[in-house]
């Protein structure tokens, strides 16, 4: 181990780290939102909506993220889509996790006992009040663990974005490795950095889950 290498490459690695955090946060937020839209689409009657939803899942869950990234970044220009690597990176992460989030939302909503909604209706509660006061609080508590899983997977998968030169931390580490002919120092940093990131995410999610499921433990 040559720790002095970190003095030289530390700033670049840290910059990569912050960029990973940035890309993943954006991908996560967009993915959560787009996943909700997808879930709502899946609820719509009509074959066209259903086909779209199924096709979407088949595409984004059924193929590797690596292939999706390649196709959009290198294949895009052939159909007139010349997008920056950073844009493709965020977009691909979001499109990819949204497919999983949509299914997580579905399981969350479907797990609520129907009787709770009947009681709300019977007591005169409007649809929107029922959604906000009854469904969402319980559903959010239920979906935190699967969402956490999916987020951690996404963070690790974001390393794939290095293949299209998104300036995130894997790119920075690979550059360090090729410039210094070292292996242990850059990749040990990477392993630790991803682990720290996921550890922090898990901590936050566990805290949220504890808060949201307070009623189950009283």
């Amino acid at each position: 181990m040559d720790f002095s290498l970190y003095l030289e490459f530390g700033p670049a690695l840290l910059k990569g780290f912050t960029y990973t955090v940035y890309v993943c946060s954006l991908g996560l937020l967009l993915g959560l939102a787009w996943g909700l839209v997808l879930y709502l689409i899946s609820l719509r009657p009509g074959a066209l909506w259903r086909w779209f939803y199924r096709g979407y899942l088949a595409t984004f869950r059924g193929t590797p993220l690596l292939v999706q990234v390649y196709l959009l970044f290198y294949g895009g220009p052939f159909i007139g889509l010349s997008l920056s690597a950073e844009f493709v990176g965020v977009l691909c992460l979001a499109l990819y996790v949204a497919a999983y989030f949509a299914e997580i939302y579905r399981s969350g909503f479907e797990s609520l006992a129907k009787g709770q909604l009947e009681a709300a209706q019977d007591l005169g509660m409007s649809r929107i009040t029922t959604l906000v006061k009854i469904q969402l609080p319980q559903m959010l508590a239920l979906i935190i663990p699967p969402c956490l899983n999916q987020t951690i997977i996404m963070v690790k998968e974001s390393a794939i974005l290095s293949v299209i030169t998104v300036p995130e931390m894997t790119t920075a580490a690979v550059r360090m490795a090729t410039q210094t002919f070292t292996v242990v120092e850059p990749y040990l940093f990477l392993a630790l950095a991803y682990w720290c990131l996921n550890f922090a995410i898990a901590k936050v999610a566990n805290y949220c889950e504890l808060r949201a499921t307070h009623y189950l433990r009283s």
Binding site: G115, A119, Q121, D122, I134, L216
Partner: peptide, 24 residues
């Protein structure tokens, strides 16, 4: 549905499974 709910403002049901909201 919203109109039906108004019509039923003087009717209320107690269910076999209670159907309380567990998060409240």
């Amino acid at each position: 549905k919203s109109l039906v709910q108004q019509e039923l403002s003087e009717v209320c049901m107690v269910f076999q499974q209670f159907n309380l909201w567990p998060h409240l």
